[in-house]
Every structure is written in C-alpha cells, then in structure tokens.
C-alpha cells in the first residue's frame, strides 16, 4: 500500500518534470563530449553560461512568455533593452555630474525603468484596445527604440568607467571561490563568483513571476485569455487591462535586462539588444509555450532560456563561426516553432 502510493508519487513528480529539462541535459551532454567534459563542465564555464543567461535572454524571456501566453508576441523587447541600457550608460557617464554618484545611479536606473515602462505602455495601449496583430505594433515600437538609442549614442559606444556600485550589478558576486589552474609552469589563481548579483536578480524575478502567475488573479486572467478569450470576456475579466499589463511588464523586464547588460559590459552600444526578442521567443517556446497562448510557466521558460544560453555558449566553445551560429540559431527557432505548431494541430 505504502510502496504503491510512494511509487505513484514518484510518477507524479516525474510527470511534472518538463521534457525540456531532458533536452537541456542532452544538449549539455553533446557539448561536453564535443569539447571535452573537463573543459566544458569546469566551474568557470558553468558560471559563464549562467551569467550570460542573466544578462541576456534570461530575464527578457519572461516578457516573451507573458506576451505569448496571452496570445500575443512582443518584438520590441530587444529594442527596449537596448534603449534602457543606453540611457543608463549615458546618464552614468554624465560628466561633470551635478549630483553625487549614488544619486546618479538611482536616477539612471529609474530613468531606464521608466523608459521601459513607457515603451511597454505604448505597446499595451494600442494592442489592448484594438485587434491589430501584435507583431506589427511591437516591430514599430522596436524601431522607435532602436532609433532613440542610436541618437543618444551619437554613433559611438558609450563607456561607463569607475562606477563600482553599478558594475557590481552585472559583474559582482556575493560569494567567490578561488580556483588555481596550471598554465605551463605558471600557476594562475582566479576568483570565480558563484553567487553573482545579476543571477540573483534573475532568480528573484522568476520567483516573483512564478508567484504572480500562480497565485494572483492577474496570472489566472493571463492564462484564461490565452486559453479561451471569449470565456475570459464572458466571465467578466477586464481583458483590456490585463493585456495592457502584460506589455507593460514586458517593457519593465526588458529594461532590467538592458541595465544588467550595460553593467556587465560597462558600455552600451545601440546594437546591443538587437535580435534578443527572438531569443526570448525561442526560449519561451522551448520552455513549452504555445504560440496559440495559455501554456507553460515561468520556470519552464527559465529552462528554455538556459537552453538557449547553453546553445550560444556551446557554439562558441566548439569554435563555430559567428555566421554559422546565426544559421544554427535561425534553424533552432524554426524547428522549435514548427514542433509547437505540429503539436497544436493534433
């Protein structure tokens, strides 16, 4: 009796483990065989992947997930990330600054988030009140963001120097380990952060959004809109407000990505975030989101985002040409969405 119910519980747990996780493990296995496990699975590379995820597709993918879950799509996320990152850099490199560095940092982050909120609201205002296809409006907003960041940049890369507090966001770590490696006769000691601040921010956001989607009416409404729009409307859900919030949150998440990106690179160029929105879509769909809406969860999206980061990192590890990487990512995007479409047809 007890053993039986125990086995059932194990089965239930196994059932809840998303298939994507096995896909991720499979990809890791392939790459570690291709590059040598010792080189691929060493701590610095593992942390590198996770850091890249946090400053890249990781947080932004949440925005993609939200939009897709409510049957839309948000192509402006990359543009917003780029604009917010650029605003942060521009404000922090304000010299001579009329206010102290701490205040300046707060101001920069505030302005970057506000820019994300404004652009997200622009998407939301239009898309929640009309039934224009979301890709076209968000594409337009993306171009506006791109232009603004180009104009702010003025054709150069904006560098942020000597802002320790700011750099801490993207490169700092709460806990580090010392690792010594032998390179020929020399002994090199490196410290590797194992609790990077950016990763903690990302995880915190995932916890927050997981709560938001599972425990609040808003989350239920987003799923309901994706599952059956008519039913949501007939149940008295304010679909306009819900869809507006989806795009507003997307803009904010993209802005956070932009800030972390600039902090990690200590510089911002107008091309930084371009194309990231498609990585976000790929991550969400790999995680199990259906383009028809209403599927997947934040944590599954997280696995999707990790998968994309692992792929990008792995392609570099096996020294694939950047151009070949473009081709490979394009193929991944098409294959993933094609599988999703085939799944929905049944």
């Amino acid at each position: 009796m007890n053993a039986k119910s125990g086995r059932r519980r194990v089965q239930a747990v196994l059932k809840r483990v998303p298939m994507t996780l096995f896909l991720l493990l499979g990809i890791i296995l392939v790459f570690s065989l291709l590059t040598g496990p010792a080189k691929y699975l060493k701590l610095s590379n593992v942390m590198n992947v996770i850091n890249q995820c946090a400053s890249g597709v990781g947080i932004l993918a949440l925005g993609s997930f939200l939009a897709i879950c409510s049957t839309g799509v948000d192509l402006s996320l990359g543009g917003i990330a780029s604009l917010s990152g650029m605003l942060t850099a521009k404000l922090l490199s304000w010299a001579p600054a009329p206010i102290g560095p701490a205040l300046l940092l707060v101001l920069a982050i505030f302005v970057a988030l506000a820019a994300g909120a404004v652009m997200g609201s622009l998407n939301g205002l239009i898309l929640s009140r009309t039934n224009i296809p979301s890709f076209i409006i968000t594409l337009g907003v993306s171009k506006i963001c791109e232009t603004l960041s180009r104009v702010i940049a003025g054709g150069t890369t904006i560098r942020v120097n000597g802002h320790a507090a700011f750099e801490f966001i993207g490169s700092g770590s709460l806990l580090s380990v010392q690792q010594t490696t032998m390179k020929g006769a020399r002994v090199i000691t490196r410290s590797i952060g194992i609790l990077p601040v950016s990763v903690l921010i990302m995880l915190a956001l995932y916890v927050l959004f997981s709560l938001l989607m599972r425990r609040t009416p808003f989350g239920t409404y987003v799923y309901a809109i994706g599952g059956n729009y008519e039913a949501a409307e007939l149940s008295g859900i304010d679909t306009t407000r819900t869809r507006f919030r989806v795009f507003l949150l997307g803009g904010l998440l993209a802005a956070v990505t932009g800030i972390i990106m600039t902090s990690r690179l200590t510089a911002a160029s107008a091309a930084n975030g371009l194309g990231m929105e498609f990585d976000g879509i790929a991550a969400a769909v790999v995680g199990g989101a259906a383009m028809t809406g209403g599927r997947s969860t934040p944590w599954r999206t997280f696995i999707g985002a990790l998968t994309i980061s692992v792929l990008r990192n792995g392609f570099s590890m096996i020294e694939m040409l950047p151009a070949m990487q473009m081709i490979a990512i394009g193929l991944v995007l098409i294959i993933v969405v094609a599988i999703d479409a085939a799944r929905n047809r049944r």
């Binding site: 192509l75 890709f135 594409l139 498609f278 383009m291 151009a323 995007l333 098409i334 969405v337 479409a341």
Partner: peptide, 19 residues
C-alpha cells in the same frame, strides 16, 4: 509547417544572412 509568418521569415532571414 504552419509557423507564424513573422517567425518563419525571421528564422530564414537569420539563415540567409548567416550564409
């Protein structure tokens, strides 16, 4: 394959430019 057109053509775009 019934991929939404903007995604399909974006993916092909990546591949073509990569090539």
């Amino acid at each position: 394959l019934r991929i939404p057109p903007f995604l399909a053509t974006y993916g092909i775009q990546q591949i073509a430019r990569g090539l």
